[in-house]
Design a protein around this nucleic acid. Structure first.
Lengths: 147, 147
DNA sequence: TATAATTGCGCAATGA
DNA sequence: CTCATTGCGCAATTAT
């Protein structure tokens, strides 16, 4: 449980990896040695291009992509949490409905029981007052003892 | 899903985050300077104590704590995922049971219906065999045994 | 006080 | 290529 009272890193982000770190350990990855365009030829639709380079962390491109990804991540995680919460809610909903259904079953069962009893009573009355050659079917006792 | 074979973590401390993490850079509130409170005098059990040093990332203590925390984080997340999965499973379970219950209700309802019909039939038979005028229920043959 | 558990966040690899 | 997911580590906070 946590109400979370974080008010720390708000704008910080930008300051974070602006470039070097206080620690001075900002080991900047070696830059691209010869670069792909060594000869000035850009290989348009093929491999062997921007990959294999450490890519400058200072690059504007880089920062931009990072920021975008960060947004995406945030979004995704939010969505994820939402979904989880929904699922949880669904559980409660189902539990409720479950109880409702069970109550209904109980009711129906009782009703059935009553009717059956009435039936039996009637059958007995008939048997007692009516002579053989009766009319209807007295032994219609559909029993249900399943599930 | 990703099988990703990251180069870090698992194996005990490697060359990875010896200092400047090639990857997980993070800002370091490297402040050590002037003590916080202008005075330096404060309540006994209060500020001004530990967090004064940047804490060497090289420190053995540091690395050890990091590793422990990483384990804890991993564990916690695993647990979290497990819980989520369980919840999802629960939903399915509940859904199944719900269907089962609904089926039962349907059955009971039908049974009830049948019994009621039988009752009605019976009532009609009685009505046919008895002189007209005897509507259904309320007609409890008023009569006059007296005269 | 120390330690473990959570949580927000950014990074990078990978999936779509 | 861009966006979405996901595993992972860091650090701050909270719970034990």
């Amino acid at each position: 449980m946590s109400k979370v009272a974080q008010q720390n890193s708000t704008p910080a982000i930008s300051v974070i990896h602006t470039q070097a770190h206080a620690s001075g350990l900002q080991q900047v990855p070696q830059l691209v040695p010869a670069g792909p365009g060594g000869g000035g030829k850009a290989v348009p639709p093929s491999k062997q291009s921007k990959k294999s380079s450490p890519m400058d962390r200072n690059s504007d491109e880089y920062r931009q992509r990072r920021e975008r990804n960060n947004m995406a991540v945030k979004k995704s995680r939010l969505k994820s949490k939402q979904k989880a919460q929904d699922t949880l809610q669904r559980v409660n909903q189902l539990k409720e409905e479950n109880e409702r259904l069970e109550a209904k079953i109980k009711l129906l069962t009782k009703e059935l029981s009553v009717l059956k009893d009435l039936f039996l009573e009637h059958a007995h009355n008939l048997a007692d007052n009516v002579q053989p050659g009766g009319t209807d079917s007295p032994a219609t006792t559909p029993d249900n003892t399943g599930q």
